[in-house]
């Protein structure tokens, strides 16, 4: 039980990072972006590439940090990949979504996002191969925190959780302390008033893609660090991330954080009663439950 809970919290932090960007895009641009989870894959592979590049440039940095399998080069790659993925998200918006938006039709955007997801996922597969990859071949043993009840945790898992929480904290501080954060919240609440208050929606959309893409990259890297990297990473995470945004309520950043943890924990704890083969279906059951009980999610507002 406690092991499932611990695993759930870790997965939850990854889902939360992914869901923050998705909920912002879904709220602002009013479409369910099925390609958002592919940004996690983009980030994960991006870090794999930069990790290799940095290690080639300065082999001394390719050392594991403490008892982690994480190296200094990979730590550096996290930051670079977040930036690259953020800009990729902006580029995809420019190339596809913005143009579809101009033609009109929110549902066409959903359509387009499926196409984009398929293209991204399979291009990654073509470039990096279909087999799973790891950031480090070093075997890092899990530390036994307690033997009864059994609780095993890997140092990388602790790092991922802490780093994810740090990113969320930074975002929280930005939203609650800076005028840029106020502007983000203002646009989410009332785009028209935000515009007449001098906020350029176009610029905010770019920033939302940057933030969403950056956080998605971090999520993908942490997933790769604690599991493995493969081209179908996005496909496997798209439904849990949607579940997290719906649980939290579309448009609510804090809801997305909470929703991510709830979905992560629920999916893992559900394995106590369900055979493990069924775990991909659990997020769907969560979505159904939320739609049945409280369609606006925990923090969402009615905005049909």
């Amino acid at each position: 039980m406690i092991q499932h809970l611990a695993d759930g919290i870790l997965v939850g932090s990854i889902l939360s990072l992914g869901a923050i960007g998705l909920t912002m895009v879904m709220h602002m641009l009013r479409f369910a972006n099925f390609s958002h989870a592919e940004l996690l894959s983009v980030g994960a592979y991006c870090a794999l590439v930069f990790d290799g590049v940095f290690a080639g440039v300065h082999s001394g940095l390719a050392q594991a940090i403490g008892s982690l399998s994480l190296t200094w080069t990979l730590a550096l790659s996290i930051i670079v990949s977040m930036a690259v993925t953020g800009f990729s998200a902006v580029a995809i918006d420019r190339l596809v979504f913005r143009r579809v938006r101009a033609l009109g039709g929110e549902l066409s955007m959903v359509f387009a996002s499926f196409g984009v997801a398929m293209i991204l996922r399979n291009i990654l597969g073509l470039i990096f191969g279909l087999q799973a990859q790891l950031y480090s071949r070093d075997i890092v043993f899990a530390v036994m925190i307690s033997s009864d009840p059994l609780l095993l945790i890997k140092p990388d898992q602790v790092f991922s959780l802490v780093a994810a929480l740090v990113f969320m904290m930074i975002l929280h501080l930005v939203l609650s302390r800076t005028t840029f954060g106020y502007a983000l919240r203002a646009v989410a609440e009332n785009p028209t008033l935000a515009q007449v208050s001098g906020i350029s929606l176009q610029r905010m959309i770019i920033l939302i893609w940057l933030i969403g893409g950056g956080l998605a990259a971090a999520a993908g890297i942490f997933y790769g660090l604690t599991n493995q990297i493969n081209p179908v990473l996005g496909r496997d995470l798209v439904l849990p991330i949607f579940a997290a945004t719906i649980v939290g309520g579309i448009g609510s950043i804090y809801g997305a954080v909470l929703g991510g943890f709830l979905v992560g924990i629920a999916s893992n704890v559900a394995l106590l009663i369900l055979p493990s083969g069924y775990s991909p279906a659990v997020p769907f059951l969560i979505i159904l439950a939320v739609l049945l009980v409280r369609p606006t999610g925990l923090f969402g507002e009615e905005r049909p």
């Binding site: 929110e106 959903v110 798209v238 949607f242 739609l291």
Partner: peptide, 10 residues
């Protein structure tokens, strides 16, 4: 409307 997209995908 996009809830239907997500639910049917699910």
């Amino acid at each position: 409307h996009d809830y239907l997209a997500i639910a049917t995908f699910g």
